[in-house]
Design a protein around this nucleic acid. Sequence first.
DNA 1: ATAGTGACAAATG
DNA 2: TCATTTGCCACTA
Length: 121
Amino acid sequence: MRDKPGPAADAESIQEDLWTAVRGIPVGKVATYGDVADFTSTVKLTARQVGRLMSLCPEGVPWHRVVGAGGMLPIGKLSPAAEAEQRARLTADGVRFLGSGRIDMTSHRCGPGDLPGPLEE
DNA sequence: ATAGTGACAAATG
DNA sequence: TCATTTGCCACTA
């Protein structure tokens, strides 16, 4: 190995795996940060880690399919415009919203194993 | 090194 | 259903 002993499994690898997991979310479905963190995993990530890395997510990644627990959109805290965009994209994907501005997780929640990502065994 | 903050989550009242 | 508190991990002052 050549290279310094950086942080366990370079952050690049983590991101790559993360994007793959997010991209594996089927259209019309959504996953929570905790779920995505569970899918990804070459290294066990926590919901916060996922959220933090999400800000770096490159183009082509349906980040809008990643929501908070219960279908809340915590993005509004960071960028109100992004929240509107996410909402519009999800609607275009066929996701329904509840009157409280939250997503109808009862029908769109993606659980571990329901994702065609690298988690398969 | 300590404290504060943040695209979160689960438990509690 | 909502508000509060605690745990989590990384970054910034």
